[in-house]
Nucleic acid binder design. Sequence first.
DNA 1: CTGAAAGCGCTTACAG
DNA 2: CTGAAAGCGCTTACAG
Lengths: 361, 361
Amino acid sequence: MTALNGFKDLALRKKTDVDAPAHNLGRPATINDIARLSGVSKKTVSRIINNSPLVRKDTREKVEALMREVGYAPDPLARGLAFRRSFLIGMVYDNPTAQYVVDMQNGALDALRGSSFELVVHPCDTRSPGYIEGVKRFVQQQKLHGVILVPRASEDQALADMLDEIGCRFTRIAALPLDDTSQMVITHDRDGAAEAADYLLSLGHRDIALITGPTAYRSAHERTAGFIEALQNRGIELPPARIIEAGYTFESGVAAAEKLLLGKQRPTAIFTGNDEMAAGVYKVAMRAGINIPRELSVVGYDDSPLASRLWPSLTSVRRNTRDTGRTAAAMLIQPEGKSALPLASVRPHLVVRDSCQPPQD
Amino acid sequence: MTALNGFKDLALRKKTDVDAPAHNLGRPATINDIARLSGVSKKTVSRIINNSPLVRKDTREKVEALMREVGYAPDPLARGLAFRRSFLIGMVYDNPTAQYVVDMQNGALDALRGSSFELVVHPCDTRSPGYIEGVKRFVQQQKLHGVILVPRASEDQALADMLDEIGCRFTRIAALPLDDTSQMVITHDRDGAAEAADYLLSLGHRDIALITGPTAYRSAHERTAGFIEALQNRGIELPPARIIEAGYTFESGVAAAEKLLLGKQRPTAIFTGNDEMAAGVYKVAMRAGINIPRELSVVGYDDSPLASRLWPSLTSVRRNTRDTGRTAAAMLIQPEGKSALPLASVRPHLVVRDSCQPPQD
DNA sequence: CTGAAAGCGCTTACAG
DNA sequence: CTGAAAGCGCTTACAG
């Protein structure tokens, strides 16, 4: 019986080294060590670990001092077993852009730093039929404390429903609010695209084209809507031929740009739904000898590293992905009742570089 | 007392539904359920979970069938607590290249898929003094099963020593063997760079320049050595002015390229230690009106997405990072004694695109 | 080849 | 505000 042993040890200690607090146990301290050495019960130590208010202030301070002294940290495995919930936050994503994924991870880790939580990653393929089962196994088996859903996985209602059903809390990251019940971080892609439109308008462009991502994606839909709306607000209506839906990939950007640039009447500016597709526009323009920015202005979305690597460097909408990840993780590890804000916002903004100029005529 | 309850339940079941094996317990099954329902002891179930040979074949098959039927999966938290070791693999890295990090993670996850292990990520800053303490806390607190060390963190002997000291197993990924004791995956950067050199030689280039990464990095050192060696093998000695040490970053590539390209006598070809710096060469060449590949051939290293996004697309050495990650993780979760290969190899190879031509004269 | 007891380091539910 | 008992779901060490 652990507890009894604890008390026997305490008795021994009292005789020998109660005045010499060199608590050196040659192994990681446990809650029993802390209880024994500070003369309180395990349960009181547990209350202190879990920030219960039901502990006298001086008791708390005494015990916390001892914890620091011996370098005590509670075992997440043992806590997890007792809580029936681990100290692991899962990140579920289906996104091909490495920088976006890494930024999101780093943001989440920012929020987890100093807490007892760690981040476990789960890329998946939302087009494969079994992927929801895969996430379910991941969540249930590891008894995850919570999950961060990254676009486009965050947009799959079936995934969210499954998580609700098994009682797993989660935070969704999305371009706009998807429902009223789940926690969300909203990235306001509509505003970012509008800023891009306003910028091109302010330079004097009027014949503008748009290469969108797959509009089944919320992000693509919002960026498209935001861009078109902003133009309309200034009295400019985009003709259908100036809007091309592509696939968020470099290759699809190349194909879209060929339609736009190799015809007789080309636009003076192009806004693309992400930087990958903007790189496709660059390739076509380069090959065709169209000078960016003199003959063609280009604005991307993401502000990925690619934006500054391209030449001329690409003006692009920055998404503040790291902040998004940090916010999402922070919502998840917040103590239960405590101001559980269901919604948070991260706002994009335009980063101006060298890829735009007033149109020549 | 769980065990006693277990036996009581078994008795009840025997009367009622022993012939109707619809084992539906409205909660995740535990080892006790499996033991009770299959009429063996907990310990025997445990042996089966842990692949012990000390189980009769028909016992094993009977129990495994039941496990499948009720969808039993052992709780990693409980196993971890008893084992004093979790089912978590850590990945420790200090690398700015997002694609490299993501490829490495995905590779590791390939190897962990279907196992009981999950991947928990730990980016760090090897230049900050406290980072080794940070890794130590990470490993000890989570009782990690093992850790994958990614360059450049993998090259820090102090980090490896700390892990040895606390008894944490780890796999290092490195350009060449660093010691004889730890498990390693060798990426043979020397060979990759040699292949780049041979390719440029085969095109007829003789006045070649080299932009290296920080040679304190093993990867940069090996790539540099491999490139220079391959040239020497063909009787070509690189003059010191043709070798510039840069920092693996885009900006440092720009600065190095300016030295090489804006002088009077420029080389006909440049090999860069990574793709980022090659993008820097592109920028300087573009700005100065130097045509790639007609007037200048460029070869990079990494075969990152950037390589195909640049125009003209960049010939580059592919590293097979995903294989590297998979191999590293596989070594870590291999059953203890079982053929614990200390060394594994992943070989790079050149991917030819549009950035090279024979020199004009 | 199989099993009953004790334990891993915590928390919950109950009692005071 | 504090504590003794029981339990979370597994494994280890010992015994047979």
